[in-house]
């Protein structure tokens, strides 16, 4: 049930190669950190792993087979800026329930208050919106979660709240997590293993 990337290479149009020959495999229940200087393609690698982007070289496999293009993707990503990942014309409950209906327990764990559900996105703060994005990504069929600077814009308390919730769920469901962050201390707290991605 592992997620595996083999010999991945990527570049935009005819630009220089962002990276080539990248190999990575993540086991269920494992928390892997990716660190490295900015501008080297960490985000692009995450986008490839979650099929937002197609690699020019190499393959991404889940469970030994390529990930089907249709249907619920087993690798879900949470982005740095929640306000971009949310349709501004939807109310929060519609956003939350787009993929599935999270149970009360999950909402409580993430500190999502019932009263927020009837609000518009612009009436919530970044931290509050990000909790929704995390809840949305934690569907029953999510096997791997990619957190690309997921809590970078958030204060320490919200960061800790979200990570406690995510870790607890990951442990319960044997879900793998890939963490991209520049915060060394956070990475040390969370990850079983850290990969240096210097291109």
């Amino acid at each position: 049930m592992q997620l595996e990337a083999k010999d991945i290479g990527f570049r935009y149009d005819d630009g220089p190669w962002l990276f080539r020959g990248v190999n990575l495999s993540v086991e269920p229940g494992e928390v892997v950190g990716i660190t490295g200087p900015s501008g080297r393609g960490k985000t692009t690698l995450c986008r490839i792993l979650s099929s937002y982007e197609t690699p020019l070289e190499g393959t991404v496999t889940y469970n030994g087979a390529p990930i089907p293009k249709k249907g619920y993707h087993p690798v879900q990503m949470v982005l740095q800026h929640p306000e971009k990942a949310i349709n501004p014309r939807w109310k929060m409950h519609k956003i939350l329930h787009e993929g599935y209906h999270p149970d009360e327990e999950l909402l409580a764990l993430l500190g999502i208050e019932q009263e927020w559900l009837t609000r518009w996105p612009h009436e919530l703060s970044g931290g509050e919106m990000q909790r929704f994005c995390v809840a949305r990504a934690l569907g029953q069929n999510t096997r791997f979660l990619i957190a690309d600077e997921m809590t970078t814009m958030l204060d320490a308390i919200t960061q800790a709240q979200i990570w406690h919730a995510v870790s607890e769920i990951a442990k319960k469901r044997e879900m793998g997590i890939i963490v991209v962050t520049h915060e060394v201390k956070l990475m040390q707290r969370l990850c079983h293993r850290i990969i240096d991605f210097s291109g």
Partner: peptide
């Protein structure tokens, strides 16, 4: 935010 420790 989003910068690596050296640049920070």
């Amino acid at each position: 935010p989003g910068l690596d420790p050296v640049v920070i």
